[in-house]
Structures are given as structure tokens and as C-alpha cells.
Simulated scan of single mutants.
Amino acid sequence: MAAKEAEAAVVLPLRSTTQTKSSAMDAIEDILYGSLAGIIGKYIEYPFDTVKVRLQSQPDHLPLRYTGPLDCFRQSIKADGFLGLYRGISAPLFGAAAETSCLFFFERMGREAVYSSGFCPRDRLLPLPALWFTGAFSGAFTSVVLTPIELVKCKIQVPMGSGAAGAKPPQAPSIMSVIRDVYKHEGLKGFWHGQMGTFLRESGGCAAWFGAKETTTKMFHLLNQRAAKSQTEKDALATEALPLWQQAVAGASAGMSYNFLFFPADTVKSRMQTSPVGGTRQNRTFMQEGRALWHQHGLRGLYRGCGITVLRSAPSSAFIFIVYDGLKRHFPL
């Protein structure tokens, strides 16, 4: 009985729907602060993302051009210099702003949906399973916005024909040239080529992203309150933000969970979106591309580039959550 009372007394300052603030202000904060956090995170992770896409998109009918992430870094810097790893970053910066703002916006909409369903009273914080659901809800809707942006990004990061051994790399395509080529040969629907992969990655990955972050945050709050020496100190901890290092660990755990659990879907998506536009080969479906990769390289091929992706996601997601939560806490609109 005493244990239940102690557990009930624990108040966790997880992000929740604010009753005193209008929905419009919440939406503006999600868009503005989410965009800023996404841009900062993208600058940190982009060189690693370029390497990841190049590792994922190596043709299955040719010998592998890169033996691993370090070799890809070495060859890329030798060919284009370090700034070459930032090639095409303007589209991803826009994409990062759109993605992160959409993630936080739709995650809040998911919370509203859960509250409106009567699953949880509005005066109580959502349980962790509901927060994993709101993450999946957010990722599913965000995937529709994100697929065209990712398609343009991938085609810029891996120019057509760059995989041929010994061939001179072609001039990097511009954003507008990629958009024109896709629209000319495949029409408007061509921009959503790879949507299934993005949907699987975002819906599953964002469930893990938000869920892991909130789970780790809850764990730290419980540990901090149990270590408190007085009730006054426990009450203070209930309303304070976590120490910065604990916020960073929670954000890093989110990014690593997101990228590792659904990485095969991202690999298949990247291969679909880096296929030549207007070629004689008909675009493969998600299942066709996945089967071809599995038959050629097995499970290892589906996780090609995973290590570098999980590594770069830790600091990136940590910064995203620290910046977003900090702005929401200290600069409410």
C-alpha cells in the first residue's frame, strides 16, 4: 500500500497538452521551435547521412565501391573535399525543418486524439504506451510530407552513375534539375516514390523516437526523486527540467532507437530513391527492391550503413530535444 502511495505521489513533467494555452499558440511553437531544432540537428548529422546514403545505394550488380563507413569518408573527402559531404544540404535543411516541426505538431495532435477518445482524462499525463502510439501517429502523417524531400536529397547525395567503378563522377545535380527530371519522367506521383519505406521508417521509428525519449526521461525522474533527501526536494524535482546530461542521454536514446529498429526500411527506401530517373528499367516496388537486396546481400545488406547512422543520430537527436524542450520551457509564446 505504501509503495502504491509513493508511486502515485511521483509527478513527471513529461510534455503534455497545456490547457492555459491556445491550440494556435501550441501549433506555432511546434512549427517554429521544431524547425529550429531540426536545422541544428541536420548540420550535425548531414556528413554522416551522406555516407549512409552512399553505402546504402551501392548497386547490387557491381562490386562494392566502399568497404565501410571509414573508407566511404576517405574516398568522399579525397574526391570532393570535406565540404562535398555537405553537398545538397539546402534541401535537407528545409526537410529537417519540415520534418521536425511536423513530428512535434502531429505528436501533439496524437495526444489530443488520445485525450478526446476518453482513454485518459485530460488532467492526467498520458501513460508510456500511449506516448509510443502518439509517436507512431506523428510519423505516419509526417512521412507524406517527408518523402518528396528525401527523394530529392538522396538523388543529390548520390549522383546518377556514381556507382560505376573507375568512372569519372558526373557533375552534382542541383535541386531544381532533380525536380525537373522527376516531374518530366514520372509526373507528380514520382515524388512519392519510396513512400512505403518512409512510412514504415517514420511510423515505427517515431514510435521508438518519442517513446524511448519519454521512457528514459521517466526513468531519470524516478531515480532523481528516489535520491532526494526530503519531500521538499522531491516536490521541486517534480517541476524542474532534468539536468542537461540526462536530457542529452534521453534524446540520444531516442535517436539510436529510431535508426536501429527500422533501418532496413530506410535502406530499401534509399535504393528506390537513388535509382536513375527516366531509365529503361521500371521502378521497383518496395517489396521488389527489398527482395532483390535480400537475395544479393542478405541481412547484412539491409543494415549497410547502420553503424554510422546510429552513431550520428545520438548527438543529433540529443540536440533536437534539448533545443526544442528548452525553447518551449523558457520562451513560451
Rank of each mutant, 00 (worst) to 15 (best):
A130K: 05
A130Y: 13
A130R: 13
L131N: 12
W132G: 13
F133Q: 08
F133R: 00
T134R: 05
T134C: 03
T134S: 08
T134D: 01
T134M: 09
G135C: 04
G135W: 00
G135L: 06
G135P: 11
A136F: 00
A136H: 10
F137K: 06
F137H: 09
S138W: 03
S138E: 00
G139P: 10
G139E: 08
G139V: 12
G139L: 02
A140P: 08
A140M: 01
A140V: 01
A140H: 03
F141E: 06
F141Y: 04
F141Q: 00
T142L: 01
S143M: 06
S143F: 08
S143N: 09
S143A: 05
V145P: 05
V145N: 09
V145Q: 05
L146F: 14
L146P: 00
T147F: 10
T147I: 02
T147M: 11
P148V: 10
P148G: 04
P148W: 00
P148K: 04
I149E: 07
I149M: 12
I149K: 03
I149T: 11
I149F: 07
E150G: 08
E150K: 07
E150F: 11
L151C: 07
L151W: 02
L151M: 02
L151T: 03
V152I: 13
V152L: 00
V152G: 07
V152E: 06
C154G: 01
C154A: 14
C154I: 02
C154V: 05
C154F: 09
C154W: 04
C154S: 07
K155I: 05
K155Q: 12
K155R: 15
K155T: 06
K155A: 00
K155V: 01
I156G: 04
I156T: 10
Q157T: 11
Q157S: 11
Q157C: 14
Q157N: 14
V158L: 14
V158Y: 03
V158K: 15
P159A: 04
P159V: 05
P159I: 03
P159K: 07
M160I: 07
M160T: 14
G161L: 11
G161Y: 12
G161V: 13
G163T: 10
G163I: 11
A164H: 13
A164L: 14
A165N: 13
A165T: 15
G166F: 02
G166I: 03
G166Y: 08
G166P: 14
A167I: 15
K168G: 01
K168T: 02
K168V: 10
K168E: 02
P169Q: 09
P169H: 15
P169Y: 05
P169K: 14
P169N: 13
P170W: 08
P170I: 15
Q171P: 08
Q171E: 07
Q171V: 00
A172E: 03
A172T: 14
A172I: 08
A172M: 09
S174D: 10
S174F: 06
I175M: 10
I175G: 05
I175F: 13
I175Q: 00
I175K: 05
M176F: 01
S177T: 09
S177C: 07
V178Q: 09
V178C: 00
V178N: 05
I179Y: 13
I179G: 08
I179R: 10
R180G: 14
R180Q: 11
R180Y: 13
R180S: 06
R180H: 02
D181H: 04
V182W: 09
Y183R: 15
K184Q: 10
K184M: 14
K184W: 00
K184C: 12
H185Y: 06
